[in-house]
């Protein structure tokens, strides 16, 4: 698969502190790439290196087949976590300034801003000062400025912080639409539910090292535990549970159904298939619930961090 961005063994030290230790990631073209990790893991440093705000000590960054150069600034749209706008400047003027810093001409910038302001229904804000807007409103302006120059690569650092659910959804839809239009998105966050919804690929950074990466589905497969949630109605729940316990590893289930049935988490042994379990269950009662327990990004995150001893 074609990669838009690759980093090869990128390291960065601040004095004695190692912020990144030989981190290599590959971001496929047209994907939404989740860059995950606990606070202080080095995500922001990596993003800043990609944006050429800081230079790596060793290692290199390849964008679209070329080593990272000055002119690539125009190919990247970056929404930092620490974000803000000039408070005393008018929205329109400010957006024009930032767009022109990204290399757009005056006319181009104006035209695209009109389009985006219409699209996000913020047209009336053009002559307002930032300090008159609420935080969420300012974030919308910031989002527009980030995507305005149609960059190949979009980098969002915690894009949803400061948005209410409605606007967060709006932005999420816009991100997905941008992806469909061919942009590649790098997405750094702690909010795992948005990772599930958006990301195709993820990389997990922990204590300056990359500890996990790949397509999200594949990672989930390696992390799956062969546990199935089971809901079943039988004549005698106690007997059934004892029978099951002798064959499988059981644990308490935590899901909701409408009826009053026996709820269990059943872990299959390596040589058994889901069909075997299902066949056995149907012979003993009426199965109302049978779901494979897929590890959530959250689980993977926590487990991977826990398993890594660095």
């Amino acid at each position: 698969m074609d990669n838009l961005l690759e980093t090869h063994a990128v390291s960065k030290k601040f004095g004695n502190f190692t912020a990144l230790n030989e981190v290599s990631i590959s971001v496929p073209k047209g994907s939404v790439f989740g860059l995950l990790g606990p606070n202080g893991a080095g995500k922001t440093t990596l993003i800043r290196i990609i944006n050429q705000i800081t230079m790596p000590d060793t290692g290199k960054v390849i964008l679209d087949g070329e080593p990272l150069k000055n002119h690539h600034i125009q190919d990247i749209g970056y929404l930092p976590e620490e974000r803000g706008l000039y408070k005393s400047m008018k929205v329109g003027e400010q957006a024009m300034y930032l767009a022109r810093l990204k290399g757009l001409s005056k006319a181009e910038a104006k035209e695209r801003l009109q389009y985006w302001f219409d699209r996000l229904e913020i047209h009336g804000w053009w002559n307002k000062k930032i300090q008159e807007l609420s935080k969420g409103m300012a974030q919308k302006v910031q989002f527009v400025v980030t995507v305005l120059h149609n960059p190949k690569l979009l980098i969002f650092d915690e894009p949803f912080s400061g948005f209410d659910p409605i606007n967060a959804n709006l932005i999420k839809d816009e991100i997905l639409r941008l992806k469909e239009n061919g942009s590649t998105v790098i997405f750094s966050t702690h909010r795992m539910e948005s990772v599930e919804e958006l990301c195709d690929h993820i990389a997990l950074i922990h204590k300056s090292n990359k500890i996990l990466d790949g397509p999200l589905t594949e990672i989930k497969r390696t992390f799956k535990s062969n546990i199935y949630e089971v809901g079943i109605k039988s004549q005698n729940d106690v007997v059934l549970e004892q029978e099951l316990a002798s064959k499988f590893e059981l644990s308490k289930a935590n899901f909701k159904t409408l009826g009053e049935e026996l709820k269990l988490n059943v872990k299959l042994n390596a040589d058994e298939s889901a069909n075997d379990l299902l066949r056995y269950l149907t012979s003993r009662g009426e199965v109302s619930h049978f779901v494979e327990l897929i590890p959530s990004a959250n689980d993977i995150f926590i487990q991977a961090v826990k398993n890594t001893k660095i």
Binding site: I53, Y78, R83, G84, L85, L98
Partner: peptide
């Protein structure tokens, strides 16, 4: 200082 407190600085220096 204003650019720092407004937190716009990172947006700007990703361009210049």
């Amino acid at each position: 200082i204003e650019e720092k407190t407004n937190r716009i600085i990172e947006v700007i220096i990703s361009s210049v």
